[in-house]
Amino acid sequence: MEETDESGYPKRTVFVTVGTTCFDALVRAVDTKEVKEELSRRGYTHLLIQMGRGSYIPTKSIGDGSLAVDYFTFSSSIAEYLKSASLVISHAGSGSIFETLRLGKPLIVVVNEDLMDNHQSELAEELAERKHLFCARPQTLHQTIAGMDLESLIPYPPGDARPVAKLINRFLGFPED
């Protein structure tokens, strides 16, 4: 069942999360007119930003026909926010990525290009190639939103630790099962 807002319209929330990082470029990107207009055009009604340790404060808005914008810094559990979201825009941390994919939510991962050792883009790009998510950069986010086809996404099959457990058991001489 779809959530509705006070006036009875279906509520479609975009949840933006930067985890415990500082990723002002992403917060700034979702706060731009282009991105907000694009999200509105695609039928999203609310934008909720978890901004972490960043210093850029997005502009709040109650909506009124356009996109409603709200933000917070941290929450002990972002699971509830992810569950109620219709679209998730996340930093490239593997924790956020897999938590979102497990919930089966459409996901855009935005790679932080300011990080020194940017191995995180590897995972996002690989999963994007396998069509489990969309991968963007802060400056190309609005194009990604405009061009994305949510139908093209393939659900991510849950991971399985049994193969590695089996190899460890075999190596140590434990019965494998």
């Binding site: 593997s94 191995h119 995180q120 590897e122 790009e125 690989e126 991971g159 590695v164 460890i168």
Partner: peptide
């Protein structure tokens, strides 16, 4: 000690 190392899922190419 038998040392088992599992590289992180975040490491795809390197």
């Amino acid at each position: 000690s038998s040392i088992f190392y599992v590289e992180s899922i975040a490491r795809v190419r390197r």
